[in-house]
Design a protein around this nucleic acid. Sequence first.
DNA 1: ATTTAAATCCGAAACGTTTCGGATAAAATA
DNA 2: TATTTTATCCGAAACGTTTCGGATTTAAAT
Lengths: 339, 339
Amino acid sequence: MTTTIKDIAKAAGVSVTTVSRALNGYSDVSEKTRKKIMTLAKELNYSPNTLARGLVMNVSKTIGLLVSGLNRESEKDQIIFSILSGINSSASESDYDLVVFNTNSSKQREKTYTQLCRERRVDGVIIQGIKTDDPYLLEVVESDIPCVLIDIPVHSDNVGYVTTDNVAGAKKAVEHLIELGHRNIAMVNGHSKAFVSKKRLEGYKMALEESNIPVNQEWIYNGKFEEHSASLAAKELLTKYPDISAIFCASDLMALGVITSAKELGLRVPEDVSIIGYDDILLASYATPPLTTISQNFYQLGFQAGQLLISMLDGKTDPQVITLGTKLIVRGSTTSKSF
Amino acid sequence: MTTTIKDIAKAAGVSVTTVSRALNGYSDVSEKTRKKIMTLAKELNYSPNTLARGLVMNVSKTIGLLVSGLNRESEKDQIIFSILSGINSSASESDYDLVVFNTNSSKQREKTYTQLCRERRVDGVIIQGIKTDDPYLLEVVESDIPCVLIDIPVHSDNVGYVTTDNVAGAKKAVEHLIELGHRNIAMVNGHSKAFVSKKRLEGYKMALEESNIPVNQEWIYNGKFEEHSASLAAKELLTKYPDISAIFCASDLMALGVITSAKELGLRVPEDVSIIGYDDILLASYATPPLTTISQNFYQLGFQAGQLLISMLDGKTDPQVITLGTKLIVRGSTTSKSF
DNA sequence: ATTTAAATCCGAAACGTTTCGGATAAAATA
DNA sequence: TATTTTATCCGAAACGTTTCGGATTTAAAT
């Protein structure tokens, strides 16, 4: 049998009220009875029932996690894992626990976002990896559940977000290529339903325009953030348009696929074609050649998301938008254009 | 305001009992009122309060996760992530949600295992990565909370475990080296507080003995499952004992560190020294040279753990022990001994 | 000695469910 | 018609907390 507050009350000869107030550090209980209750609680191995507490206090001290990509496919980039680690770190600094929702099964998808959150009575939610056309997104804004989004720019009374400066990051990448003398720069983007893709495309165009290089729409492909799709895209790009001397990829995973294609076509990387990625995943430095890329700190992304949500829940701050920086990491997959 | 069962009752003109029984599919409510209640529930956007339900039913439909290594350090091997994915998959097939406990902060460590579980009223727990001397381990056995351990051989009325055959795996690895003609085979193990280390050491010794090769205790080092520690160990091993022609490492991460050391000492891998790892992490195939290793399916490990726990919770099976197989993956870091 | 203030305690209601043991009315049986 | 069955419903208690408003006792102030 699990001991309840009643058992302690009986054993101590006081009311449950007093036990509750003693355990919670209220001032209107004498030091003597508090001591007695405390030791009794330890002796009886008491642990409070958070369900009961949550029911009456209307808080659960839990944070819901709506992460897409906690599955086999995304083992290759450790992105989700890093974000998760960051969130977990921030949660363990306070006394929140994380509950990860089951959203990948189609069955569960019948539940609306609000249902999901309210059933578990989570105090707030962190959402990652949902697409721009996901119906959940609308609900997030409409509901009154505190929420922090990762890489999705939605800002309201109760939802903030944390992201990196994708425009600047992409711009930095393309500028690096331009500085190396490249002018025929293609792009392998993710997909149109991703916010980051839009932003990175923006940065790509901006960099080109600032150097008076015309943007060629035919040189922009979508690789769905997948290695294989990107590989196919690159094959088409490089055979159709042999003028291309550099490719900017919206993710490292896609860059790896692009490198494979280039090699298969008999092109040397970086001598014949320079390739730059985005993310700086672990594999980037192990690839051959090691990948030049834009580094973003996913752990920090998750950590900040957690911090923000918790401080919102504790009423310390209003929903904010936090933008992290990126860093150009020059490795071996880019070099100056040969003439 | 969130709608409760009472609101529906009022709106439908029935008692809360009837609403509850209608919603839960009991037979003693007429089809007419059930319909009315159902539509009303939908209209009012009702979602049941799992806290209240859990309180009275004494089940929470949640599985606790006690995973060590959900932190920055283990980004390099995607092991935890894969296990997590597997658990998540199995959870989403049923209607359990996962709650990950905060155990890494020293503050939270004050709570006992039982407290952790009982506070959240989890129905069961999956534990991964705790050491043989962890006080939690004792509690697991003593408590009556259904539990599945990963890679920790504890079996009782309410705890089962899933693991891989580490003895056989290690044996396979060393046998591979022996077949290549190696006889001076060192081992870089993990640490003495890990079950898998004990088992892999066992397999190492067994393979040697079966080939009548004497076991040399001085050739067995501990690398703490860390790349750097293993690197240091290997440096010492290879300088002190130049006879060594092959090293069996208890993890790929350590094998990577060992390769680094070998290179730094001017040794060629695999020509001068063959190195074999364990795990088959993602990096293994990207390393130079690509790592020969023993592959284990971490996703499957997590999935089976989830399946087992859930079927235990549903009363379908008693705690079991599940042992998965391993596979030798021959890549470029091992070759036949040159004379 | 009387009044006021402070310290310490408690009863009861509330949170949102589920469920047991009936109650009522309609239908079937005798 | 009287009795039994069946179908449909409901009241109230229970789960383990927190908290409001008040009660009692003790100490301080007048």
